[in-house]
Design a protein around this nucleic acid. Sequence first.
DNA 1: GATGGGGATTCCAGCAGCTGGAAGGTCAAG
DNA 2: CTTGACCTTCCAGCTGCTGGAATCCCCATC
Lengths: 128, 128
Amino acid sequence: MNIGEASRRSGLPAKTIRYYEQIGLMTPARRDNDYRDYAERDVHELRFVARARALGFSIEECRRLLALYRDRTRSSADVREAAERHLAQIRSKIAELREMERTLNRLIDACHGDDKPDCPILDGLASE
Amino acid sequence: MNIGEASRRSGLPAKTIRYYEQIGLMTPARRDNDYRDYAERDVHELRFVARARALGFSIEECRRLLALYRDRTRSSADVREAAERHLAQIRSKIAELREMERTLNRLIDACHGDDKPDCPILDGLASE
DNA sequence: GATGGGGATTCCAGCAGCTGGAAGGTCAAG
DNA sequence: CTTGACCTTCCAGCTGCTGGAATCCCCATC
């Protein structure tokens, strides 16, 4: 199938699919006219990557996961390890954002939000 | 003062400070030898930006905040509005990450993590 | 005056992960 | 034979820096 249909079926923009090929994630077959020719298995892999990306895995992590996905002799421990590493990253990112939220919330609470120039938010940013 | 000291006093790398100038965030004075010459007020602004960035404001948002910071006739409502917009973004990012965390956690829980190839994590990615 | 070191300057390139656009080739329908 | 929807490649740009190269400046020491 052409890239357009692979795009429709994977949910990924054609541009993105080409990009994934460019960085060596997947290499679909080519027809005589140089059009890319995607097989069912390619679409599966595209969806696989799409979901991994949606879970926040980086492209490099996706590359690794894809290698494990293709490798019928993998051990699930390797997959789990990668997933746990990523989960830890997500959690620390959440903690970071929550800290931002907390601080910002505090500043906003202290601000009247009227037409006068006094502003605890700016003051807070100027000297924490 | 030279950029080196401004860097030390603001906590921002000199590279970053030059970058901020390049994109028009601030324009310090110059000496005869073309060295940048930072005043106290510049350092204040650099710290201001540093803190805003630490709270996750984008550069464009920082530009806006800086304009408000400089404007003695601003109304605090404008600042508050910008802060609230940003807070909403942070919260939706947190929600997104929590959803990722939840999903990933579920997959990891289901995975034995042994040396066998069966892996619910990969299966989950392959077909959610 | 030469030299050495630690500044400073500019500009160019690259990171992630796409996305948009230009310039052109291909194919089926009318 | 033309139209329009596809496909191709390549180049540029987004955010927010960061690294490096080549060069210049200032000050101290010999």
